[in-house]
Amino acid sequence: MKTFKLTAFTLFSLFGMNAFSQTEAANKQLIRDGFDRWAAGTGSFFDLLAEDASWTISGSAALSKTYTSKQQLLDEVIVPLNELLTQKIVPTVREIYADGNTVIVIWDGKATAFNGDPYNVSYAWFMQLDKGKIVKVTAFLDTKDFDAIFEKAAKR
């Protein structure tokens, strides 16, 4: 009779990796659903943010910094940006990657600015999730075009 010795590594390999991939799949789906609702105009992606979420806009844009709450991000970035657009940003997801509780989305946003100029910006968002909520984001984007819409608005 052959006996098998189960080590902690073996158990993690058998069960832990499966649980990890389930978490990754669930996180990817949550984010995909959020983008789908946003694109369809049936919901706000930002509803997925925890109230105390940390959101960092990378780069050298005037708004590049870390926002320490959902409300601060909405008040200082999202609402002012939407007020400068005649049409809200419509996202098109190119790729979604997941690694444990981190989800990376590469996407393109298209809208029309108040002056008729197109607003076409590509983004990469690195998001950490906890219990179905986004708790931390680092956002990479074309800060030149992002800044331009705010600069033109200041001149009107």
Results as ranks from 00 to 15, higher is better:
residue 23 T to W: 08
residue 144 K to H: 12
residue 33 D to M: 09
residue 66 T to D: 01
residue 44 S to N: 11
residue 6 L to H: 03
residue 34 G to M: 06
residue 89 I to R: 08
residue 76 E to M: 03
residue 19 A to M: 11
residue 108 D to F: 05
residue 52 D to P: 09
residue 66 T to P: 05
residue 65 K to Q: 04
residue 142 D to I: 01
residue 81 L to K: 04
residue 80 P to I: 03
residue 121 V to C: 05
residue 128 Q to L: 08
residue 149 I to G: 02
residue 90 V to Y: 01
residue 113 A to E: 02
residue 74 L to I: 04
residue 95 E to N: 15
residue 34 G to Y: 11
residue 43 G to P: 00
residue 115 N to K: 06
residue 14 L to M: 15
residue 32 R to E: 13
residue 60 S to K: 08
residue 96 I to W: 07
residue 88 K to P: 13
residue 14 L to N: 09
residue 142 D to G: 01
residue 130 D to R: 14
residue 28 K to N: 09
residue 9 F to N: 13
residue 71 Q to E: 08
residue 66 T to A: 07
residue 141 L to M: 14
residue 110 K to R: 14
residue 86 T to R: 01
residue 84 L to C: 04
residue 102 T to K: 15
residue 156 R to N: 05
residue 134 I to A: 06
residue 114 F to S: 12
residue 128 Q to N: 15
residue 123 Y to C: 02
residue 129 L to M: 09
residue 18 N to H: 12
residue 58 S to C: 14
residue 72 Q to L: 05
residue 38 W to K: 00
residue 115 N to Y: 06
residue 93 V to S: 03
residue 7 T to Y: 08
residue 55 W to R: 06
residue 13 S to K: 13
residue 11 L to C: 08
residue 82 N to S: 07
residue 122 S to T: 13
residue 108 D to H: 11
residue 156 R to W: 00
residue 134 I to W: 12
residue 20 F to S: 11
residue 143 T to D: 10
residue 152 K to S: 08
residue 31 I to V: 15
residue 51 E to W: 01
residue 126 F to E: 05
residue 129 L to D: 08
residue 103 V to D: 02
residue 135 V to G: 06
residue 2 K to Q: 13
residue 95 E to W: 13
residue 34 G to C: 03
residue 29 Q to E: 13
residue 95 E to C: 08
residue 3 T to H: 12
residue 111 A to C: 06
residue 74 L to W: 11
residue 19 A to T: 05
residue 127 M to Y: 11
residue 72 Q to G: 07
residue 57 I to Y: 04
residue 82 N to I: 05
residue 143 T to L: 00
residue 121 V to W: 07
residue 101 N to D: 15
residue 9 F to G: 14
residue 87 Q to P: 02
residue 20 F to V: 14
residue 63 L to G: 00
residue 44 S to D: 11
residue 137 V to R: 03
residue 66 T to L: 12
residue 104 I to L: 14
residue 110 K to M: 02
residue 36 D to P: 04
residue 71 Q to L: 07
residue 37 R to N: 11
residue 22 Q to D: 14
residue 140 F to D: 06
residue 20 F to Y: 14
residue 115 N to H: 03
residue 62 A to S: 09
residue 20 F to N: 10
residue 74 L to S: 09
residue 118 P to L: 00
residue 86 T to H: 12
residue 11 L to Q: 07
residue 131 K to R: 12
residue 101 N to H: 03
residue 12 F to G: 08
residue 35 F to H: 05
residue 35 F to I: 01
residue 89 I to K: 01
residue 56 T to D: 10
residue 48 L to I: 06
residue 87 Q to R: 15
residue 52 D to A: 10
